[in-house]
Amino acid sequence: MKAMLLEQYGPEPVFAERDLPMPEPGPGEVLIKVAGTSLNPIDNKIATLGSALAFAPDAPAVLGMDVSGTVAGVGEGVTRLAEGDPVFGCAGGVRGIPGALAEYMVADQHLLAAPPECMDLADAATLPLVSITAWLALFNKGGLRRGERLLVHGGAGGVGHMAVQLGVHAGAEVYATVSSPDKAAVVEALGGIPIDYRETPVAEYVADCTGGEGFDLVFDTVGGPTLDASFEGARIDGRVVSTVTRSTHDLSLMHAKSLSLHVVFMLLPLITGKGRGLHGRILADVAGLVDDDRLAVLLDERSFGFREIAEAHRYWQRGEAMGKIAVSVSG
C-alpha cells in the first residue's frame, strides 16, 4: 500500500511517499480502507518536536490520528463491526500505532463508531479528536449542567468551536473568548456570545456577563496565562477544565475561591490502551448530533490530499487556517 512517511522531524518536517506492507488486524482490531484524516495541532507538534514528546513515534513514521473510512477486514474477536461498515475515530499516529496517512490502517474496534450519515466520509475524519476532547471536558470532567454559565477560551478553535456547540446543546449560557471579528462571527453563528479578550479585561467581562459572580465552568484550550485568567473568571466553588497544563502557576486564587481543576489528556486511552470504549461511545453520540443538525465541524476553505501533507503542515504553521484541515486519502 501507499503511505506518506514522516522521515525527518523538525520545523519543516520531511514526508515521502513509500510502499509499505499491508497491515493485518490483530485480535479486537479492524483493517480500515482510509478515506480521510485531518491535521490537528498535536499532529504538527509530533512532526516538529519528535522524540521530545514521549508518545511520538520514531521516524520513519505514519502519522495521522483522526481517521475515517470503510472496514476492509476484521481480526479475531471483533463483534462491533463488519466488513463494509463505514467508521471514524481517533485511532493511531502515536508510538507503536501507525496512523491514517496511508491507504490502509489497523485500529482497535472500541475507538471507532459509525460516522454521521450526512457527512462526506473523508470529511468525517475532521471530527474525532476535537469532538471527543470537548465532550470529555464539558461532561465527563466539567459536569456541565443546564442553565449554567460556560466560558470557553479559544471559542473559534478546533476544540473550542465544538465546546461552544455542545454547551449550547446542553442548555448552558455559553460565552467564548476570541481574537478577531471573524472568530467572533463564528462563535455567534454557533450560538455563543463572543468576548474579545484583547480589548476586555477579565474582571470587566466577568462583571458584564455574570454580574460579577464568575462562570460556573471555564474550559481553557489555550494554556499559559489563559489558565490564570480561567481561575480569575470562575465563580467561587467553580470548575476549571484545561487541555494545556504543562506549565507552572500560582494556585493562590484557585485556593481562595475553592476551585476544582480538571485536566483532559484525550490521547491517554489511545496511548495506554485503557478506557478506549468511552471514545467509541462518545463518537456515536457525536454522529447522532451531527445528523440531527445540532453539531457541525467548521472546515477550512483549503483541503489537501495525503501526498500534500507537508504543505498542509506549512499552511497550519503560517496561521492561515480557519477551521479543521481535511486531508483526503482515498475515494
Rank of each mutant, 00 (worst) to 15 (best):
L127I: 15
C209M: 10
L20Q: 13
E117N: 10
N40Q: 10
R246F: 12
I325E: 02
S179K: 03
S252M: 13
F304N: 04
Q165D: 13
T221P: 02
S330D: 06
H110K: 14
L270T: 04
A229I: 03
S303A: 13
V264Y: 04
M65S: 15
H255E: 11
A163L: 08
R246S: 15
G93W: 02
A326Q: 13
F306C: 11
V159E: 02
A59H: 05
V264M: 07
F139T: 03
R239C: 08
D19C: 11
K2V: 01
G273P: 05
A59M: 02
P128T: 12
R294A: 11
V327Q: 03
P181N: 13
L49V: 01
H110L: 14
P128C: 03
I193Y: 12
Q317Y: 02
M4Y: 04
L5Y: 05
A124F: 07
Q165N: 09
E17W: 06
G305M: 04
E7Q: 14
E311M: 04
R314S: 12
F231K: 06
G142L: 10
D85A: 13
L251E: 10
V329F: 02
W316M: 15
C90I: 10
G273C: 09
Y315C: 05
L217T: 03
L150G: 12
T243H: 08
L136D: 15
D300C: 10
A54M: 12
Q109I: 04
A124D: 12
V159Y: 00
A107K: 00
G154Y: 05
A113I: 10
T210I: 11
G84W: 10
R239G: 02
E199F: 01
V202F: 06
M322R: 15
G211H: 08
R318K: 14
A113R: 00
G233E: 06
L267K: 10
A310I: 06
